[in-house]
């Protein structure tokens, strides 16, 4: 139980998707102009991560890994399909995002109005695919661990983009050297935030 909680805390603060691995930077930079939209996108990313990573975990465990097909019978025990994992993961992600979009539109129109516009963006957000790939690399023992990791990473990403958007709102009023305005200062701030987050190392 405690290691599940550990994984969660670790993935929010220490292995933060944005600050430690620079994942999902494109949408992070593009959609952080104001806090409200940033929060919406952050929620959508957390949601999609929490759904896709466990699904991909099961895919990996029962379909792709060396020996994963042994449940089909002895003859399949030696099959190693792990070279196909990239393609399958991305297909699962694209499929689930599409599915979520349709389900939300039909049954949860309010939520759809809030998150819907972000969903298509998310299929190509590297944080989502990154979540699945790191999950594969970390070799979690159960699907619960992978869920905890996914939720933590998603919330970490949410935290990063909201913090950054809040800073950006203030930045509008500050006097920045002209060539540095826009992207330049955005990168530098992200870097400084990242250094701040490094203080969590070793928890």
């Amino acid at each position: 139980m405690s290691d599940i909680f550990n994984i969660f805390v670790r993935s929010v603060f220490i292995d933060n998707m944005v600050f430690a691995y620079f994942l999902g930077m494109c949408s992070y930079l593009a959609v952080s102009k104001d806090v409200k939209t940033a929060f919406g996108l952050g929620l959508a990313v957390s949601f999609v991560l929490a759904v896709t990573v466990p699904v991909n975990y099961l895919m990996d465990k029962y379909l792709l890994q060396a020996g994963a097909l042994s449940w089909l019978g002895e003859r399949f025990a030696a099959v190693d399909l792990s070279f196909l994992s990239l393609i399958l993961f991305i297909a699962v992600i694209a499929g689930i995002v599409q599915l979520l979009e349709m389900v939300m539109e039909r049954y949860l129109p309010a939520l759809y109005m809030a998150l819907g516009i972000f969903l298509p963006l998310i299929a190509v957000n590297c944080a989502i695919l990154g979540g699945s790939l790191f999950m594969q690399e970390k070799n979690f023992p159960t699907v619960i661990h992978s869920f905890s990791y996914a939720l933590g990473s998603g919330l970490g990403w949410l935290l990063a983009i909201v913090a950054f958007a809040a800073i950006r709102e203030r930045l509008k009023f500050s006097n920045i050297p002209v060539p540095l305005r826009g992207n330049g200062i955005a990168y530098i701030i992200t870097g400084l935030l990242g250094i701040g987050f490094m203080a969590f190392l070793g928890i």
Partner: peptide, 15 residues
């Protein structure tokens, strides 16, 4: 060597 410095360097490059 730390990851955040990569971002700061890119910021400086843009500048």
């Amino acid at each position: 060597i730390l990851p955040p410095m990569a971002l700061i360097l890119v910021g400086v490059l843009i500048w």
